[in-house]
């Protein structure tokens, strides 16, 4: 293991902002944020549909406002294999729907309220994520 590109300050700052967003939503609307839950409820359920829609739109507006006010580009590096991304997206959709949460719903909201179910889910997807990246480095050169 080599440790590279470690950015603890920006990670912690961004994390605190995400935690603050969870609390704003909880104190005002009484719900705990889980993005996979909000996204799938938006397409599947009529309940709270407009609220869910506005939250998802907010997720997209956030980076736009950040760029506008800081004048900084947001650079990301993402696979250019459409097949891989389509397959990954499908697995993320199916998996989070079956297990009832993702990195935010289980990993932050669930772990934060000390739910054993969410702690088990988080350990599972983290471990499998690490194993997937490990196996990927054997199977193909990215």
């Amino acid at each position: 293991m080599n440790i590279i590109n470690f950015t603890p300050i920006s990670a912690l700052t961004g994390g605190v902002i995400i935690g603050f967003s969870v609390i704003v939503f909880f104190l005002l609307n009484g719900r705990l944020i889980g993005v996979s839950g909000i996204a799938n409820k938006f397409v599947i359920e009529k309940n709270n549909r407009f609220d869910n829609f506005l939250f998802l739109i907010g997720l997209i507006i956030g980076p736009i406002l950040y760029k506008f006010f800081t004048k900084q580009e947001i650079n990301i590096v993402i696979s250019d294999s459409f097949i891989l991304l389509a397959f990954a997206g499908l697995l993320v959709g199916i998996g989070t729907k079956i297990s009832g949460g993702c990195t935010s719903g289980h990993g932050i909201s669930g772990v934060g309220r000390f739910s054993l179910r969410s702690i088990v889910a988080t350990i599972t997807f983290m471990t499998v994520g690490v194993l997937t990246v490990f196996l990927k480095s054997f199977l193909w050169v990215d």
């Binding site: 889910a121 988080t122 599972t124």
Partner: peptide
């Protein structure tokens, strides 16, 4: 479900 999510996340 969490394992499937982990695979998709890692990919």
């Amino acid at each position: 479900g969490s394992a499937l999510f982990g695979i998709g996340w890692g990919l």
